[in-house]
């Protein structure tokens, strides 16, 4: 439970700039999600906080104290690795006990047993406690790896795509559990994911990383409804936001605008100009409509039981769209 601050943190690997002057405040008790495509610097950010790597310049603070030069143990952080990293020579139980038995915590055995039991039940791995860590499925390993963090009460939990290998149901279960645990305990959590639902439902704050730069930081709604750039807007939303030439539609368009950004809910259907249906995807709860509009493809959502078919005409019109300039920065 603590506030974490990154101040102008830069990290290079050879010529590669993994983090470029990143400043980020993770408020005490918040659930911060980092978004960004592969190679954006998400894992590197976690490693800066955990102490596995040191920044080339900049500073990192826990509750106002710089932690540069401190060992990972001194920083008292828990981390769920992207690659699980379970100790292969130990059983699941021993893996979960490992952090509790460290010289840092030295927990009494009774308390260890209690915590291991509680965590393994939440993660639905209680029946595998005596398995060798190598005798598990990928999803089970991932849950043990989460468990190894959850048995502790560190300054901050760092989780690197912790639910990526789970099936849809388990992922939904654990998403809710993790959020519940974090909310109840008031722990600070920094979480990396590519999953939009996880980001929207769990986060109190979302940070968008682009090529080592933090380009936007705010609440999920803020990032979704008020993206600062095309890049930021593309991180959230299923189907993705449509980016089209700014002057494609009738009506006025701001000066210097290069592109218009339309999320499905920013496309009015039934009014405006003609678009042709090129494809209809029934997903069950919704239907995705692929449209051809003046030689441009776009995707929107329509009624789940739509009678629309290939080749038919739909009238569309932008509604409170985003406009972006030449560099992809948001204008309106």
């Amino acid at each position: 439970m603590a506030e974490i601050v990154l101040e102008n943190v830069t990290k290079r690997f050879g010529d590669e700039v993994a983090l470029d002057n990143v400043s980020l405040t993770i408020p005490d008790g918040s659930f911060v999600v980092l978004l960004g495509p592969t190679g954006a610097g998400k894992t590197t950010t976690l490693r800066m906080i955990s102490g596995l790597d040191e920044p080339d310049s900049g500073d990192v603070f826990i509750d106002g104290h710089s932690i540069l030069g401190q060992t990972p143990a001194q920083r008292n952080v828990a981390m769920v690795f992207q690659q699980y990293s379970l100790y292969p020579h130990l059983t699941v139980r021993q893996n979960l006990e490992f952090p509790l038995k460290s010289p840092l915590l030295q927990t009494p055995q009774a308390e260890i047993n209690e915590k291991v039991k509680a965590v393994s039940e939440v993660l639905q791995i209680a029946h595998k406690l005596d398995n060798k860590a190598t005798a598990l499925s990928g999803g089970e390993m991932q849950r043990v790896s989460i468990g190894r963090a959850l048995v502790r009460s560190p300054n901050i939990y760092l989780m690197d795509e912790p639910l990526s290998s789970l099936d849809a149901k388990l992922r939904a279960d654990l998403r809710i559990e993790l959020k519940r645990i974090q909310a109840n305990s008031g722990q600070t959590l920094l979480y990396v994911t590519h999953d939009q639902i996880e980001a929207m439902t769990m986060a109190t704050h979302i940070g968008v990383l682009d090529n080592g730069k933090l380009v936007q930081f705010g609440s999920p709604r803020e990032v979704y409804e008020n993206p600062v750039s095309i890049y930021s807007a593309s991180r959230l939303g299923q189907p993705r936001i449509n980016i089209l030439p700014a002057d494609l539609f009738e009506g006025d368009c701001p000066k210097h605008a290069k592109s218009i950004g339309l999320r499905p809910e920013q496309i009015n259907q039934g009014k405006g100009e003609d678009a042709y249906v090129t494809r209809v995807e029934h997903l069950g709860d919704q239907t995705r409509l692929h449209l051809k509009f003046k030689e441009h493809d776009l995707i929107t959502v329509t009624d789940a039981h739509t009678p629309l078919q290939y080749g038919e005409v739909v009238k569309i019109q932008p509604k409170e769209p985003f406009f972006f300039d030449e560099d992809g920065a948001r204008i309106v």
Binding site: S50, G51, T71, P72, F81, S85, P99
Partner: peptide
């Protein structure tokens, strides 16, 4: 032996030698 195991142990509160 992947270095991740040691990194995990460092995070789990152990010194490098441990």
């Amino acid at each position: 032996i992947p270095i991740e195991y040691e990194e995990a142990a460092l995070i789990d509160g152990y010194t490098r030698f441990q």
